[in-house]
Amino acid sequence: MSLTNVYHLRRVADTSAKACLICYKPSTSVMITPDNKDFFYVCPAHLQDRHFCSPIIDAESEAARLKEQEMAEEIEKVKKEYEEKQKRKKERAKQSDKDEKDKDKGKKNDKDDSKDKESTDSKTNDEKERDEKGNETKPENGPRIFALHKTFYQMRIDRLRGIEMARRNQERMKNPSLFPSVPTKDL
Rank of each mutant, 00 (worst) to 15 (best):
S2K: 15
T4M: 10
T4K: 11
N5R: 11
V6N: 05
Y7N: 01
H8A: 03
H8P: 01
L9H: 02
R10K: 06
R10F: 06
R11C: 03
V12C: 07
D14F: 02
T15M: 07
T15I: 10
A17V: 06
C20Y: 11
L21Y: 12
L21I: 09
L21R: 15
C23T: 06
K25H: 11
S29R: 01
S29T: 05
S29H: 07
V30T: 06
V30E: 03
M31D: 02
M31S: 02
M31L: 15
I32R: 07
T33D: 02
P34G: 03
D35V: 00
D35S: 04
D35N: 03
D35Q: 01
N36E: 10
F39C: 13
F39Q: 14
F40N: 03
V42D: 03
A45I: 04
A45M: 05
A45D: 10
L47Y: 01
Q48A: 11
Q48L: 09
H51A: 02
I56D: 02
I57W: 00
A59D: 03
A59I: 03
S61Y: 10
E62R: 04
E62K: 01
A63C: 05
R65I: 01
R65H: 02
E68L: 10
Q69K: 13
E74T: 04
I75H: 09
V78Q: 09
K79L: 11
E84D: 14
Q86C: 13
Q86H: 11
R88E: 07
R88H: 05
K90C: 09
K90V: 12
E91V: 00
E91G: 00
K94A: 04
S96F: 11
D97E: 12
D99M: 14
D99S: 14
D99V: 13
K101F: 04
D104S: 09
D104N: 10
G106P: 02
G106K: 05
G106E: 04
K107C: 00
K107P: 00
K107T: 06
K108W: 07
K111Q: 08
D112V: 10
D113T: 01
D113E: 08
D113S: 04
S114K: 14
K115W: 06
K115N: 11
K117F: 06
E118Q: 07
D121H: 11
K123G: 00
K123T: 03
K123E: 02
T124K: 14
E127K: 08
E127T: 08
E127Y: 09
K128N: 15
E129W: 01
R130Y: 09
D131K: 12
K133Q: 15
K133D: 15
K133I: 13
K133L: 15
K133P: 09
N135H: 07
E136V: 03
E136F: 08
E136K: 13
T137R: 10
E140M: 06
P143F: 07
I145N: 09
A147P: 05
L148N: 02
L148I: 04
K150C: 07
Y153K: 08
Q154C: 10
M155L: 15
M155S: 15
I157E: 02
I157M: 02
R159Q: 11
R161T: 08
G162F: 10
E164S: 12
A166V: 06
Q170S: 08
R172K: 04
M173K: 13
M173I: 14
K174E: 10
K174C: 05
N175M: 06
N175I: 05
N175P: 04
L178R: 14
F179V: 14
P180S: 11
V182C: 09
K185M: 13
L187F: 13
